[in-house]
Amino acid sequence: MSESRTVASLLLAAVAGLALFPFASDEFYLELFTHFMVLGIFAMSLDLLIGYTGLVSFGHAAFFGLAGYLLAIITPESEAMSLWVSLPVCLAGVALAALVIGWFSVRTSGIYFIMITLAFAQMTFYYFNENVALGGSDGMFIFTKPTVGIGGFEIIDLGDPTTVYYAVLASLVACYLLLSMVLRAPFGRVIKAIRVNEHRTRALGYDTRRYKLAAFVIAGTMAGFAGYLEAVSTGIVSPGHLSWHQSGLVLILVILGGMGTLYGPVLGAFALGLLHDQVQDVTVHWQLVQGIFVILVVLFLPHGIAGLVARLARRGAALAERAREPES
């Protein structure tokens, strides 16, 4: 009980810190942190699959990139489009794609699932990479930002980096709360059970495939939401957004941060992002550093940063306990 309360207060403090960050930051870091938070949402959505349902998807980038492409396709070149139109359209499109891909994928498990999700993501990648009408390997620009208005009044200006930052922060918090709610609900109980023992879950009367598919669609749609935010904030979408390196990256973020925690993947996004930012000044061979880093994390930190924090917290609590004992 106290452990979860500690976590909750740390998270609140982190959100407060992020809320105050724009006052102390220049535009470069503001946009960098916006990007980290978008990746955080993306990684959090994958955590629902990996950390809670036990489905290791290696094609999650398909949904991230697809949302961006959908936005680029429906946004007219010269006049702005309302977010109230473009967001639902993009999310519905991504959800449909997740439903189709998921329908095939959840029939398989383990290593097959890893490979089939990868294959579907590659299919999406090649489709956009080779489609000249959609920009081919150069990708597409989103020329106008979506407008956010209520009753004719423009309430949020997505052209302003600080506004985008806060919008993304709010989205991050909202996604966290949404997934927490889903995980506490009966549905969450079932998918957690599937991760631990799918066979028994089925024997207890659950059509586990349907629940896995539902989790897949939720996670895919949320990844699409992250992709939408990314496209809005950067104004560009390219095949790189759906490449398997993007799927690999988000997988790394989940493990680095600590799977099965929701907030861990966000930590992972910040940790790897800041590391990149630092290493960039020293060497151009970021991939090499990243690769070695990933190998070291797998070998020595399988439960990620969140796992490390929890271990330290437990050790701290044990020490405090021992210190208190002689007094009583």
Partner: peptide
Amino acid sequence: DHLYQVLLTYGLILVLDEMQRI
């Protein structure tokens, strides 16, 4: 778990690709 095998060997790709470029 397969998950870690995927990750470690993915890290290996990043390393080998960069070596190739170097």
